[in-house]
Amino acid sequence: MENPSGKAARPLRVALDARYVQEHFPGIGRYVYHLAEALAALPEGPHLTLFYNLSQTTPRYDLPALAARFPRKITLKETSARPFSLAEQYRFFFPALRGHYGAWHAPYYLRPYLLPRPTVLTVHDVINARLPGAMPSRKTRLAFAVTTRLALLTSKKIITVSQAAARDIEQLYGVNPAKIRVIPHGVSPSFRPLDPAEQAAARSRLNLPKRYLLYVGINKPHKNLARLLEAFKLYRDQSGDTIRLILAGKEDARYAGDLREKARQLGIMEQVEFRGEIAESDLPGLYACATLFVFPSLYEGFGLPVLEAMASGAPVICADNSSLPEVAGEAALYFPAENVAAISTAIGEGLGQSEELRQKGLARARLFSWQQAAEKTLAVYKELSSKK
C-alpha cells in the first residue's frame, strides 16, 4: 500500500478487545479469534492490537500462537482488567490514547464505555430484550437494559450478524439504521464433509452411535431443548425408529439437571446422550457423522451451529424464527419452535430428505466465509478512521 508521495503507507491500527476469548464466552470467543485470523490474513489488512487477559484464556483458541503466525499484523497486549470489572472502565483510556488506533472494536456490550478512540460494537443478539424471561431477575434485566443502551449510545458504528438482529436493534433501541452494518459470521474450513475412512475414525474416536440426531449449543432455556426431548420421544413412539439423540455443547449448571430430569420423566434417558462441551478438534467429526442436525431455538442472532452443520455435510432442520431462515435459506426444513408435534414431524421429513438437504446445505455454507466477514469489517474500520 502506497500513499501519493510514493512511500509505503502505514497500515490502519485497530484495537480488538480479545478478553472474551475465554471459556465464559464460547461463541464470542470464536467470533473474535476467527475474525482476527481473517483480518490478519488480508493483504492490506489492519495492524491489530489484541488486548487479552492471561489468567482467562481457553485452549480452544491460542492467541499467542495466532500472533506468532502473523508477527507483522498482530500485537498482543496483556491486561489484568477482566470483563464485568470496574477496572475495565478506566484502565483502557490511556492505552487507547497512546495506541493511535483508528478504531477500537468491542465484541460485547459490557465494555469500556469512555474511550478516546471511535468504537465499533458488535451486537450478536438482543435475546434478553426479545425474551426477557431469559434473565433471572428484574435487577439483572434492568442492568442489561442500561448497559446495552450505554454501549449502543457510545459506539460510532454497530456491527451485527443478521438482518433480523439489525431490525431488533432498530425497533427495540431506536438506533438509526445508518449506524448499523450487517456482517454475517463465516464458517471455519475445518467444518467439511468426511470421507468414509475419516467418518469411521471419528465414530471410533468419539464413540458415536450408528444413527443419531444432533444438537450443538448451550443448554439455556431459550434453546428449547425440553421441547426437543418431547418431540424426540414422540417421533420414536410414532415411527418405531430407534435413532438416538446427542445433545452437545457447553452446559450451564443451572439447567443441566432439569433436562436430565425431563429425559427421565419421558422415559428416554437411555436414548439421549448428554455429551457436554466438545473439544474444538472433535466438533467437525461430530457434525459430519450426524444423521440429522436439529436446532429448535426460540431466538438466535445468527445461529452459527446451523452453518457449521451444513458445511460438515449434515442435513439440517431448524426453527422458523429470528435469523435462522436468513442463515439457512432454502437449505433446511423449518418448524414452529413451540409446537412439539411439528418438530416431531420435521424430524421424520428431514430424515426422509436427508441427501437433498445435505447437498443444499453444502452449497449454502459456501456462501459464508470469515474472509468476507473480515473484508466487510475492515471497511467499517476504514470508514471510522476517515472520520476522525
Rank of each mutant, 00 (worst) to 15 (best):
P26T: 01
G27S: 06
G27R: 03
G27P: 01
G27L: 05
I28E: 08
I28D: 07
G29P: 01
G29F: 03
R30T: 07
R30M: 01
R30D: 00
Y31Q: 02
Y31I: 01
Y31W: 05
V32Y: 11
V32W: 08
V32Q: 12
Y33P: 07
Y33N: 01
Y33T: 03
Y33F: 15
Y33E: 01
Y33L: 05
H34N: 15
H34S: 14
L35P: 09
L35C: 13
A36Y: 00
A36F: 04
E37F: 07
E37M: 13
E37N: 12
A38E: 03
A38M: 06
A40D: 01
A40C: 10
A40F: 06
A40S: 07
A41W: 02
A41H: 02
A41P: 00
A41D: 12
A41C: 08
L42Q: 02
L42V: 03
P43Y: 03
P43H: 05
E44P: 00
E44M: 04
G45D: 04
G45C: 09
G45Y: 05
P46C: 09
H47D: 08
H47G: 09
L48K: 06
L48P: 00
L48R: 04
L48C: 10
T49A: 07
T49F: 07
L50T: 02
L50W: 06
L50D: 00
F51G: 03
F51L: 10
F51M: 07
F51V: 00
Y52H: 14
N53R: 14
N53Q: 13
N53T: 10
L54K: 15
L54R: 15
L54H: 10
S55H: 10
S55N: 14
S55Q: 15
Q56R: 15
Q56E: 15
Q56T: 11
Q56K: 14
Q56C: 09
T57F: 11
T58Q: 14
P59L: 01
P59Y: 01
R60D: 15
R60W: 14
R60P: 01
Y61N: 10
Y61T: 06
Y61S: 13
D62F: 06
L63K: 11
L63R: 12
P64M: 10
A65T: 10
L66D: 13
L66A: 13
A67E: 06
A67R: 02
A67K: 02
A67T: 03
A68R: 15
A68E: 15
A68G: 13
R69M: 12
R69S: 13
R69D: 09
F70W: 08
F70E: 00
P71A: 09
P71Y: 08
P71V: 02
P71G: 08
